[in-house]
Write a protein that binds this DNA or RNA. Structure first.
Length: 988
RNA sequence: GGUCGAUUAGCUCAGUGGUAGAGCACUGCAUUGACAUUGCAGGGGUCACUAGUUCGAACCUAGUAUCGACCACCA
């Protein structure tokens, strides 16, 4: 006999270990079996499990366990990602926190990287062990890490091949620069956020004191403003970049500035005697209707300006160093400005390198932080009187003329931040390595268009196309130390040798040539992009590669469609002969808290999956939630809320309950608002199954014996195997279609409502009766149906089902190795189904009436059936015992007529008569019947109206019409019987 | 600005053309026999709004309102 209840803590880890030791997670490598592969989205090596991982891996595990049971050769490929920036950040923080003066630069590259490896060894397994707690059936013996030697070989080969094809190149480009990490990052790693900003308006005086007539017109061409100006008005949100301006641009159609196009104007900042003059040019980019219509062009510090500068061959002067400080290198400002002046006047040639070396930051600003420099520039320009002035709006209503103040608009501006560092990203002109993503994207787009890879839900393909069709060159070099070193070596004169190894590079260069390897490492996503084939041994032609590429389904959240899915598509197709890396991409929801807010430590609303599995006291819960708040002052409120919401913390719900909850909530295309109540509900569900099994054991159910539907005798047994068949078919279909919520609810409903609430109750009189044959059949069916339920539930609740399997019979193998129920339609006996439907309805109706008329729960009621057909009579005889037991009856017999004053209800053709006149009040009973008649009447009117509509009868499908006719007949018959009963009562 | 999504019971959500559903919460009743982590019975919804298509609309179409996500962006 199994324990009183299931204790997850006592079993889960033990069961997991047994599976692992028995090799249950390894692919069968059975060549006759269909291969089935899922690549885990490799978690960050230093990460720990959060709710998103829990959902993501629960779904993968459901798929893998399901397909494994269906006989497929399953590899769920596990591993971890070295996560360049994220990991380097963690270790750098540790260095800082350890109090020593060491940072990575003072340590040096080798020592630092060694330190990171130490940290990886120390904490690297955490998340994988947490995945095991969840029950993940990964092929752990094949666990990979993106920095493993064999994966490194793959990375180098991909790089070299792409380089040799010209699809990877090095170039000086404007890139997103993270001044905190001092590295370039890709567009995707930049978060644009709206912040409060300012727009300053400055006057750029025309060279030599020239003037022009500035004319503004309204839409009809009437002149609204006309004045002589000796300047052009420029607006900017980043005044410090003025120092690097190369031109002022206006739209070619802008008549206001036509007189001065081609002339020079002065950047109104810096030492007066070395003011730089820049040309006024035309370009399509400026919007004449925005601001003054004139834009300063700072090619080295703005992406739009960069394009304009490239088109117009405008020099792009870099102003900042890698920390985001104003440059302090190079010649003096006076010297640099003079050269720049000659360039601007076309008197001196320039090239990229020459411009890059020039430092046009005036001496007083050199070495300032970029935001300090901004303040200084504004102050200096304003002091000199070159700010555009307006009347102070504060004084508008006064009689005296309002004083003038500099025009500074407060406005929301979009500012780029590093997604990891949180600092403002600086566009910087630097030498970087790029992948020609546009070329690689083409076949990747086509693969989705042609359906070789499908997104589920399919609307995500729009997102994919949208990004892929507008893809920019992918900056893959990072000025970090933790990652794959770029496989490029430079000769003494900058010659480039790209090769998979240093030795091969040396061979290319020739003996004795001194080579220096590129200092940079690759973007983390470069190696993640190879994951589907690098983990299978590529470039070797391994069995794993042949068998498990392409994979079946990629399971991931939408937020890495661009980062990861798109890159895997591009690189997989490129290097695996045009074959896509996976057939389906299942995009699942983001897990949020109960109120729909994104979980984050900074908000104090994180639910740790392990806390739900193991349980956690309220004090610990409070401590965890208030530990890393963005606004620490909110801690008391959070504490109060948590204590109110979870007075005792979380129970140890176990992994099964968590998994089932996530599956049940994993609907297509909607976020999950996770509620702990629901987890408790599904924990109860496990308990229910557990107790049903206990019941079976107490009644000597036979486990391990299979059942043939043809051999069954009792309708109730025929019925339950039919219901089981319907359930397993629904579950299979739903999982195949990624409708995990439907799959979960089908098996939940079967187990609780059908099996426990009905079948177990229906079986009690048989199991306790003296018909040995019926008893034996029922014991066999009960045991077998439960076993099949374990199987059907196993993908969702692997632990409790495995334990039940193990404890109900002597087993030679694991539940997880069983074959998925291959039940077919022969299990569905329609006659038995109809018969049991009648039994269930009869019991329910009687119970309902009892409750309505307040018959005491314990009272046994005499009931008779009037107007029953022969078939119903047979059913009464066959099921009398169980109906009497479940509806608490004193007798249940056929009768010709009902005694006066009895209470009636209707099932099918017969009237059910509760002979309890003395227990009830005639008036109340009439009222009850009237209420029911009212309901019936409404429905009947609706049906009659519909069926009376010729168009409906003519156009609706025949079966729909027939169905509704049938229903109308049934309702009318019921109505007639009830109204007769009512009239009888009334006439008393 | 572009794209996608949401709006259904008190709460969290299923439901893609044919009798409105689940879990939790709520109400009443029931505690020695699988299970109170329970059972039985019940209350509760103009399916955001408007107009269309259709015999028939929560569902399809168009529009409106509110909320949200992603992408892009005017210096």
């Amino acid at each position: 006999m199994i324990d009183q209840r299931f204790d997850p803590k006592a079993h889960e880890q033990r069961v997991y270990q047994r599976w692992e030791e028995a090799g249950c997670f390894r692919p069968s490598m059975d060549t006759s079996a269909e291969p089935y592969a899922i690549m885990i989205p490799p978690p960050n090596v230093t990460g720990s499990l959060h709710m998103g991982h829990a959902l993501n891996n629960t779904i993968q595990d459901i798929l893998c366990r399901f397909e494994r049971m269906r006989g497929k050769n399953v590899r769920w490929q596990p591993g971890m990602d070295h996560a360049g920036i994220a990991t380097q950040m963690v270790v750098e923080r540790q260095l800082a926190a350890s109090g020593g003066n060491q940072d990575r630069r003072s340590m040096g590259r080798d020592a630092f990287v060694e330190k990171v490896w130490e940290w990886k060894e120390q904490s690297g397994g955490t998340i994988l062990n947490q995945l095991k707690r969840l029950g993940a059936s990964c092929d752990w013996e094949n666990t990979k890490f993106t920095l493993d030697d064999d994966l490194n070989v793959a990375v180098n080969k991909v790089f070299v091949d792409l380089y040799n094809e010209g699809l990877i190149y090095r170039a000086k480009r404007l890139v997103n620069w993270d001044p905190h990490f001092q590295t370039a990052i890709s567009n995707l790693e930049v978060e644009n956020k709206e912040v409060d900003g300012h727009m300053w308006h400055f006057k750029y005086p025309l060279a030599g004191g020239q003037t022009y007539t500035y004319v503004e017109k309204d839409a009809d061409g009437n002149i609204t403003l006309q004045e002589e100006r000796d300047y052009i008005s420029i607006a900017t949100t980043r005044p410090e970049t003025m120092l690097g301006d190369g031109a002022v641009a206006v739209h070619p159609s802008d008549e206001r500035y036509a007189p001065i196009v081609g002339k020079l104007c002065e950047i109104p900042v810096g030492p007066k005697q070395h003011r730089r003059l820049i040309p006024i040019i035309t370009d399509e980019y400026p919007d004449p209707d925005f601001g003054s219509g004139a834009v300063k062009i700072t090619g080295a510090h703005d992406f739009n300006d960069y394009q304009v500068a490239k088109r117009g061959n405008i020099p792009m002067y870099s102003l900042m160093d890698e920390k985001g400080f104003m440059r302090a290198d190079g010649k003096t400002y006076a010297e640099e400005a003079e050269i720049a002046q000659r360039i601007a006047e076309g008197k001196e040639d320039f090239d990229e390198a020459k411009i890059a070396a020039m430092n046009l930051v005036p001496d007083p600003y050199r070495g300032l932080d970029r935001f300090e420099a901004r303040k200084a520039v504004i102050a200096d320009i304003s002091a000199e009187g070159n700010a555009v002035m307006v009347a102070d709006p504060k004084h508008q209503d006064e009689e005296t003329e309002a004083p003038l103040i500099p025009l500074v608009e407060n406005k929301k501006i979009m500012q780029p931040f590093g997604d990891r560092s949180g600092v403002v990203i600086e566009p910087m002109l630097t030498d970087q390595w790029f992948v020609d993503a546009e070329t690689l994207a083409k076949p990747a787009i086509e693969a989705v268009r042609s359906g070789k890879t499908k997104f589920v839900p399919e609307n995500w393909d729009r997102t994919y196309y949208n990004w892929m069709e507008n893809i920019e060159p992918w900056c893959i070099s990072r000025q970090l130390w933790w990652g794959h070193r770029i496989p490029v070596w430079y000769g003494p004169n900058g010659e480039v040798f790209c090769a998979p190894t240093a030795a091969e590079a040396q061979a290319l260069a020739g003996d004795g040539v001194r080579l220096q390897q590129d200092e940079d490492v690759l973007d983390t996503w470069f190696s993640s992009g190879l994951w589907p084939f690098s983990t299978q041994g590529w470039p070797e032609e391994t069995d794993g590669l042949k068998t498990f590429y392409p994979g079946a389904t990629l399971v991931t959240a939408f937020d890495i469609i661009f980062f990861w899915v798109a890159r895997m598509m591009m690189l997989g197709i490129k290097f695996m002969d045009g074959e896509v890396p996976f057939k389906d991409v299942y995009i699942h929801a983001i897990v949020r808290d109960e109120t729909g807010k994104k979980m984050s430590k900074a908000e104090g609303n994180v639910i740790d999956p392990i806390d739900l599995i193991d349980g956690v006291g309220v004090d610990t819960l409070v401590a965890k939630r208030t530990a890393n708040l963005r606004q620490p002052e909110k801690a008391p409120k959070i504490e109060k809320d948590v204590r109110k919401r979870y007075p005792k913390g979380f129970d140890a719900y176990g992994a099964d309950a968590l998994r089932f909850t996530l599956a049940a909530m994993a609907t297509k295309g909607r976020d999950i608002n996770l509620s702990v109540d629901r987890i408790a509900g599904y924990r109860n569900f496990g308990t229910k199954l557990w107790n049903a099994t206990r019941f079976a054991q107490m009644n000597e159910a036979k486990f391990g014996v299979s059942v043939e539907p043809q051999s069954l005798d009792l309708p109730v047994n025929k019925w339950i195997v039919g219901e089981l068949y319907k359930c397993t078919a629904a579950v299979s279909e739903a999982i195949e279609d990624y409708r995990f919520n439907d799959a979960a609810s089908a098996v939940y409903h079967f187990t609780w409502d059908v099996l426990c609430d009905w079948y177990l109750e229906l079986s009690k009189p048989i199991l306790n009766g003296d018909d040995v044959q019926a008893q034996t059949e029922t014991q066999t069916v009960l045991g077998w149906v439960l076993e099949q339920t374990f199987v059907a539930l196993h993908p969702f609740m692997p632990f409790i089902t495995e334990v039940l399997w193990d404890q109900t019979a002597k087993r030679s193998d694991f539940l997880m190795q069983q074959t998925w129920p291959g039940l077919n339609a022969s299990f569905a006996d329609e006659l038995a189904a109809e018969e049991l439907d009648w039994v269930l309805k009869t019991i329910s109706q009687i119970r309902s009436v009892r409750s309505d008329v307040n018959v005491p729960a314990g009272a046994k009621v005499p009931v008779s059936l009037v107007g029953a057909t022969e078939e119903t009579g047979r059913r009464v005889a066959a099921h009398r015992d169980v109906i009497m037991r479940m509806a608490r009856l004193e007798k249940f017999d056929l009768a010709d007529a009902a005694p006066a004053g009895s209470v009636k209800t209707v099932v099918g053709e017969a009237t059910i008569v509760l002979e309890i006149a003395d227990l009830i009040d005639a008036g109340e009973e009439i009222a009850r019947l009237d209420k029911q008649l009212g309901k019936l009447g409404g429905e009947i009117t609706g049906l009659e109206k519909r069926l009376g509509n010729d168009a409906f009868v003519a156009k609706a499908p025949a079966e729909v019409v027939a169905e509704q006719r049938e229903r109308l007949t049934e309702l009318k018959s019921t109505e007639a019987k009830l109204s007769q009963a009512r009239d009888q009562l009334a006439s008393l």
